Simulated scan of single mutants.
Amino acid sequence: MYRERLVATDAQTDSARKLQGLLLDYHDFRQHKAAHPRLADTFLVAEWQAERLRNTHHDLYRHPGYHTGLEFLLTDLYAPASMTRRDDNIDRVFPKMVKWLPDNLLETFAGLVELNLITQQLDLEMAEQLVVRGIVIERMSDADYCAAFCASAQLACRERQILLVADVGRQLDRYVRNRTLGWLLSMTRGPAEMADLSDLHSFLHRGYSAFRQMDEVEALIERLVTREQQVMENILQGHPQPFRLPDHL
């Protein structure tokens, strides 16, 4: 809807141009996905993988210092079925973003957009691989998932996805330690509602609140990355229980 606005915006810094390019790629992919015959299957794949992540990291998910942040990751950052208005609004306000936001914050937004784009691209490819194999996604087993995963042509993107989670998580943690951001989010709630940006504002406020409540974010990120890299290695090596990890991880 707002592609012309993205294209017409004069992005003058490297970070602004990076975000602009990623938003254009994400905009075009969202249009492609919306018309794709496997659209409904991508949501089932996303739900399956979100549940797998909860199970793999069940100890962290139940930890009171991490639960809110991980829930935000799984329901807000990884929720392709319900964020169309939020994504449209990011496109809509992009000209103001590059005008008012500092480069380091534009860089963080770029990481979030790239993470969302890669995740949804991988979900679509996974859905296609499963359909080729005649797998009913609602009854997909771990072995079915791993076979489709190993047939993927996007393994480098899966590695990039894990690293992006770490990078974006560290950047977000730095921002939420700044109390000024919380004050600004509280002060801008009314103007956001008047500008029909309440969904985008709510997303930002939930992310701020979630990360503010988290303990030792760096330690959490290191454990998530180490575990997910081990899961990926297990799958590619044909481990009989790829999602069961050693106790020390």
Rank of each mutant, 00 (worst) to 15 (best):
residue 123 D to L: 08
residue 74 L to R: 03
residue 103 D to V: 02
residue 87 D to T: 05
residue 96 K to E: 15
residue 133 R to H: 10
residue 87 D to P: 01
residue 109 F to H: 07
residue 73 L to H: 06
residue 157 C to D: 15
residue 106 L to G: 02
residue 91 D to V: 06
residue 34 A to M: 04
residue 135 I to T: 09
residue 147 A to H: 05
residue 119 T to C: 08
residue 92 R to D: 05
residue 32 H to N: 06
residue 145 Y to P: 01
residue 56 T to H: 01
residue 168 V to H: 00
residue 72 F to I: 09
residue 110 A to G: 05
residue 48 W to I: 02
residue 23 L to W: 00
residue 123 D to A: 11
residue 155 L to W: 07
residue 112 L to D: 07
residue 142 D to E: 15
residue 36 H to N: 13
residue 61 Y to P: 00
residue 44 L to T: 09
residue 39 L to T: 11
residue 122 L to S: 04
residue 158 R to G: 01
residue 154 Q to F: 12
residue 30 R to Q: 10
residue 48 W to G: 02
residue 83 M to E: 15
residue 79 A to Y: 13
residue 151 A to N: 14
residue 32 H to S: 06
residue 82 S to F: 07
residue 24 L to C: 09
residue 159 E to M: 10
residue 110 A to V: 07
residue 121 Q to H: 08
residue 154 Q to C: 11
residue 133 R to V: 04
residue 94 F to I: 06
residue 166 A to E: 13
residue 150 C to H: 13
residue 24 L to G: 00
residue 125 E to G: 00
residue 138 E to T: 12
residue 126 M to H: 04
residue 87 D to M: 09
residue 102 P to E: 15
residue 24 L to K: 01
residue 99 K to W: 11
residue 121 Q to Y: 08
residue 147 A to F: 03
residue 25 D to N: 07
residue 120 Q to T: 12
residue 152 S to E: 05
residue 105 L to A: 09
residue 115 L to Q: 06
residue 91 D to S: 11
residue 134 G to Q: 05
